[in-house]
């Protein structure tokens, strides 16, 4: 029996980008193209919150010096659902994510073209600290500050305002943020313990709580589970599904199963281009573009 043919991608072939007409935001990923052969993989349970577009990328191009990392990407980001960005390493998904709250500006060589809108307003017109309070970010490696658990969560609240709130006033929002991040019951006895002594999964949930304390409207997550064990990962995925009811969540992930489990919408990027943007179930079960089919099918990664 001959071995199965190996599908390869030739790099100089014209990109097979599908121009999907703007997807109507219907509140859940179901009801689109059904399973087109293969195993049907169910997506996350539909969200109960109304879906509302909060951010939009409009022909966004990002370059590091002469090297273009993200090329003319159009992408809507909606509250009430989770957007997952997938793609092989170096495809620009993390760069795009970091540009959403202008963290790319911390890199000296980075430059950006196109517009990013938050509630219809250009983010370049917003003050950067205001923007980052509204669009917060959780990183790949848990990065709690070398302070106590309490001080970590209170950090944004203390440094954000012009007046320093007292510890008593902070107790309530800190508890709320830790509860939302599902960490309150594990740390409520040890709020003054060093955050860096927590386990990796707890540290990452602490970082999520730290972001949530400032009550952001959009939460960006850059491979938040890649350094964590399966149980911590499951906890964080559960948390993501809860969070999408109130805020827009964008998650970059290398893990296709994770994208299937949590994402209502999936954006597949390749070599800086947005190849396909579709409801999760459609993208995984009936991808329109050849590259998406290859990537999702495991031909490369």
């Amino acid at each position: 029996m001959p071995p199965p043919p190996i599908r390869k991608i030739s790099l100089d072939a014209p990109p097979t980008v599908v121009h999907v007409p703007p997807v109507p935001l219907d509140g859940n990923g179901n009801g689109h193209a059904g399973p087109a052969g293969g195993v049907h993989t169910p997506g996350p349970p539909p969200s109960e919150a109304p879906v509302l577009e909060r951010m939009r990328c409009d022909a966004v191009t990002i370059a590091y010096g002469p090297k273009v990392a993200v090329n003319r990407v159009d992408l809507p980001i909606a509250q009430g659902e989770v957007l997952a960005m997938i793609g092989p390493s170096g495809c620009g998904k993390t760069t795009l994510l970091r540009s959403l709250n202008r963290l790319t500006e911390l890199t000296a060589t980075a430059s950006r073209g196109g517009r990013i809108l938050l509630d219809g307003q250009d983010i370049d017109a917003l003050e950067v600290t205001t923007l980052r309070k509204r669009v917060s970010m959780v990183f790949q490696q848990p990065n709690p500050f070398p302070m106590s658990v309490f001080d970590n969560v209170a950090y944004g609240l203390r440094e954000g305002g012009s007046k320093r709130p007292r510890k008593k006033e902070l107790m309530e929002p800190v508890e709320r943020a830790l509860t939302r991040a599902g960490l309150w019951h594990e740390v409520k006895e040890n709020l003054d313990h060093p955050a860096l002594r927590l386990s990796g999964g707890q540290q990452q949930r602490l970082c999520i709580a730290r972001s949530l304390a400032a009550q952001p409207e959009v939460l960006l997550m850059d491979e938040p589970c890649s350094a964590l064990d399966p149980i911590s990962t499951a906890k964080i995925e559960e948390l993501i599904l809860e969070l999408r009811e109130q805020i827009a969540v964008v998650i970059v992930t290398h893990n296709l199963q994770q994208a299937q489990r949590v994402a209502d919408k999936v954006a597949f990027m390749y070599l800086g281009e947005l190849v396909e943007y579709a409801p999760g179930e459609q993208l995984f079960n009936a991808p329109q573009a050849q590259r998406t089919r290859d990537y999702v099918g495991g031909a490369f990664g």
Binding site: L103, K133, F139, Y155, E159, G160, C207
Partner: peptide
């Protein structure tokens, strides 16, 4: 660690405060 500085920036804390606090 740069991750601490970035983490502080991502919370909307400006460069000056980040410098002193982190």
């Amino acid at each position: 660690p740069r991750s601490w500085v970035e983490g502080s920036a991502a919370l909307g804390v400006n460069r000056w405060r980040t410098m002193w606090k982190v």
